[in-house]
Every structure is written in structure tokens, then in C-alpha cells.
Simulated scan of single mutants.
Amino acid sequence: MQKNIKEATGTNLKLIISNKRFLKAISLINRNLINNTNISLTLISYECNYYDQAHFIKEFKRFMGMTPLEYIRSFNDKKDNYILTLQSFNTLIDVFNKD
């Protein structure tokens, strides 16, 4: 099965799952920021099936080049500029996650 997935997508199953899980996590963070709600990183890591919060933070940093807290602080510093971009980003994620 993994060989068929690799041939069809050009990447391995582990990377596909990792990407999808990260997209769900960033979407939850973005929605939290846009809606000005307060959801914990522990809950986000749990919702996205990370082993624990430390694993989530490590993966987030690998994908984004910064920790979730740094990302949130960056957003808060430039909130007005990010709102439309995040709404568009989340729309794309929703389309991707329907597959």
C-alpha cells in the first residue's frame, strides 16, 4: 500500500499524515486567533493526534521555523494584516481536509 501511495503522490504516507495533521493544527490556531478565543496548545496537540505537546511544538517548529507561541505573538503584533490572509488560508485548508 505504501508503495502505491508513494508512486501516486511522489511522497511517503508518513509525510502525508504529518502534513495533514499539521494543517489541522495550524487551522485550529488560526481560527483561535481570528475569533479571539483561548484554546490551549495541549488541546490542539490532542485534537490533532500528536503524542504530546512537546511533539506538537517540535513538528510546528519544523514546518514553520518558529514555535507556536512565537507564531501567536507574531500574529498579535500584526493582527490587522493577518486576518484576511488567515481566512483565505483556512478556506484552503478546509478544501484540503475534505479529501
Rank of each mutant, 00 (worst) to 15 (best):
P68S: 02
Y51E: 11
N90Y: 00
R62M: 12
F89I: 03
I29N: 03
L84F: 12
D52I: 04
L43Y: 01
S18C: 06
D80L: 15
N49S: 11
N30L: 03
K20W: 01
E70H: 03
E59T: 05
G65I: 04
D80A: 15
N19R: 09
N49I: 01
I17T: 05
F63M: 01
S40T: 11
N76W: 14
N97I: 06
N19P: 07
T37R: 07
I34K: 07
N38H: 03
T67E: 13
I57N: 08
R31I: 01
C48I: 00
N30M: 04
R62L: 12
I17D: 04
S74A: 15
I93W: 02
L15Q: 06
T67V: 07
D77Q: 15
Y50E: 07
N90A: 05
R73Q: 14
I16H: 09
T91A: 11
L23C: 07
A25F: 01
E70R: 02
E7C: 09
L92N: 13
I57E: 10
N76D: 14
G10P: 09
I44N: 01
C48F: 02
N36E: 09
T42Q: 08
M66R: 08
Y82Q: 14
I34V: 09
T85L: 15
F75H: 13
S88G: 12
Y82E: 15
L33D: 05
Q87L: 10
L15F: 10
Y46Q: 09
T91P: 02
D52N: 12
Q87G: 02
I93K: 01
G10V: 06
K3S: 15
I72N: 09
L33N: 09
D80H: 15
Y50M: 07
N76P: 14
K20H: 07
N30V: 03
F75W: 13
T37D: 08
C48V: 00
D94M: 08
N4Q: 12
M66D: 09
L69M: 14
G65P: 14
S18E: 10
